[in-house]
């Protein structure tokens, strides 16, 4: 327990979680009023994938169904996720919670200090999340917050499946 207490990335939330949640709710209202957009993170990665694909294999990338429907371009969503990195840096820096490390202590306690297994696992997780988010139509922010608060049936169904799928994999990894 003590080793966790001194790790800046493993402390409890700096601000009360319900206060943060309430402010996120206000943020969704503001994005709708100001930019006519809702918060959602996952499509930014698809935009990057499309931009890279268009640079490396333009004809093939443009032939793919998803990129035909949604032409990759520097857009609101990509700017949003770029801002998230900067905003989280400001928050961690102002709160003395910058971690600056490759391995989370909880991972090390379970799997040891090798870096590559963690990176491979996180990469595989990213592949699955992107595929799942595109198929489901959103991620924990797009469906989980923006979609649920508009009472979308698909968003509630998706977010329930996010957590069911997550539990089904997290328990064997960390608790069995």
């Amino acid at each position: 327990m003590n080793e966790f207490m001194i790790d800046p990335g493993s402390t409890p939330a700096a601000w009360p979680p319900m206060l943060v949640g309430a402010l996120l709710g206000v943020l969704v209202m503001l994005t709708l009023v100001v930019a006519n957009r809702t918060l959602g993170a996952s499509s930014a990665y698809a935009t990057i994938a499309g931009l890279i694909g268009r640079a490396l294999a333009p004809r093939h990338t443009q032939s793919l169904g998803y990129f035909k429907k949604k032409t990759p371009a520097l857009d609101w969503g990509l700017m949003l996720v770029t801002g998230v990195v900067a905003g989280a840096f400001l928050a961690a820096w102002s709160g003395g919670e910058l971690t600056g490390r490759w391995l989370p202590p909880m991972w090390v306690a379970r799997f040891g200090p090798e870096v590559w297994p963690r990176l491979a696992t996180a990469f595989a997780g990213g592949v699955l999340m992107a595929f799942g988010a595109r198929l489901a139509g959103g991620c924990t922010s797009g469906h989980g917050i923006s979609g649920t608060l508009q009472l979308s049936v698909g968003s509630w169904l998706s977010v329930i499946c996010f957590f069911l799928g997550g539990m089904a994999v997290a328990f064997p990894i960390y608790r069995w």
Binding site: A122, G125, G126, M129, G132, A133, T140, V169, I173
Partner: peptide
């Protein structure tokens, strides 16, 4: 899609938005 996303979420521990925030916080993984 939701179940596949969840499996990936458990593997990486970060979701698409919180992962970007984790990077900003200094979690390079």
């Amino acid at each position: 899609g939701g179940l596949v996303f969840g499996a990936g979420f458990a593997l990486s521990a970060y979701c698409p938005g919180t992962g970007a925030a984790a990077l900003g916080q200094g979690n390079y993984d």
